[in-house]
Design a protein around this nucleic acid. Structure first.
Lengths: 196, 196
DNA sequence: ATGCTAATTAGATAGCTATCGAACTAGGAG
DNA sequence: CTCCTAGTTCGATAGCTATCTAATTAGCAT
């Protein structure tokens, strides 16, 4: 899956993303043809057609048999159908996700942190919701999971990273990264909020 | 079908024949994203991503909702599946033929005739089987269907177009364009020989 | 062998497309 | 109202791909 998946899919689409190659498939679906014949039908020169046939043959979409001087090409319906089926069955929601297997999902958060955090210090507070959440998730890591903190302790820890402990304490609770009862705070396992 | 068919298919494949666009689909299948976020994940600049999203949106593969300043994109699974299904179902042998709907199937024969026939005269006899057949099919049209010809008449008609009437008379019979019994010749409805 | 025909390979060019920086637009936030 | 942020649009550039001509290979027929 993943890396290999996307490469195969990419080759598949690239080969089919050309008008003349599609036409060649169309002609060959009807009858076996030589290169010059195809060239005449598509009003191209032989080398061009040869080049296209190369690509089609690489993926196994066409077969070739040699008859005297002629190289007679024909459509390989099986390969075409088999491969298309495989590709298109990868278009279920779950499989599409795997197209992004090799993207580093941290890159975004890293960039945001780089922009708003310097070492241990929060230098600026991002305006946008998504970015602020990144900062909060970074900051909340300075609290142990499962442990209870008094409000004074919370303020103290936050203040090591940004002077406005009130803001962040409030944001923690509002965004569901911490809970509070009777003046006691604790970390909460965060999960994506439902955006309805 | 045909002309319209191939254009739709082409647009479909062209949009999907790009690594970064596939990755975008992959990411969006997992979560809603803004442009800058995608840019960071794919290590591209925002304008590039915007450009890709344009193309994906043209085909309806992604939806956009605007939230404050952010444009949040998400995968449109339905469109993707619906469209793939349509394309995929065009890969039956019969449908593939229609990809060549707008190729002029006469082009090849016209070219061969142009190369070996000058006006009414056959100037040269092509060596290859396929080309010779084109000439024969052209020549046989000088004989009426359903009528019987004596060998002398056959020779006479052929000779108006090429001196070697023996050759062509023989070829006619060998290739099944004419039949002969008791010294009488007649045209036969020609059909593609079975190449086993 | 020699020449002819069809196909492929190599090399060059033109056209398209992905990418980027810069300028522009539009929505909040102070 | 002004600034700031996120997105889009514009213009330029670099890289890829389709196409062609010329040169090469392979098979057939003379």
């Amino acid at each position: 899956m993943g890396q290999q998946d996307i490469e195969a899919m990419l080759r598949f689409f690239k080969v089919l993303a050309n008008e003349n190659r599609l036409k060649i498939l169309g002609v060959l679906a009807d009858r076996e043809c030589g290169v010059e014949e195809l060239a005449a039908l598509l009003r191209l020169k032989a080398p061009t057609v040869s080049h296209h046939l190369d690509k089609l043959r690489d993926l196994g979409f066409v077969d070739m048999r040699t008859d005297g001087n002629d190289h007679l090409y024909r459509l390989s319906v099986d390969s075409l159908q088999e491969m298309s089926k495989r590709v298109f069955s990868s278009f279920t929601p779950e499989s599409v996700v795997s197209l992004a297997d090799d993207v580093e999902y941290d890159a975004w958060e890293a960039k945001v942190l780089g922009a708003f955090v310097d070492g241990e210090q929060i230098t600026r507070v991002p305006a946008g919701y998504k970015k602020r959440l990144v900062i909060l998730k970074w900051l909340v890591n300075y609290f142990e999971e499962g442990r209870k903190y008094s409000e004074k302790e919370v303020n103290e820890i936050i203040e090591r990273h940004h002077e406005d402990y009130c803001l962040f304490r409030r944001e923690f609770v509002m965004n569901g990264l911490m809970e509070r009862r009777d003046g006691v705070y604790w970390r909460v396992e965060w999960q994506l909020p439902d955006l309805a």
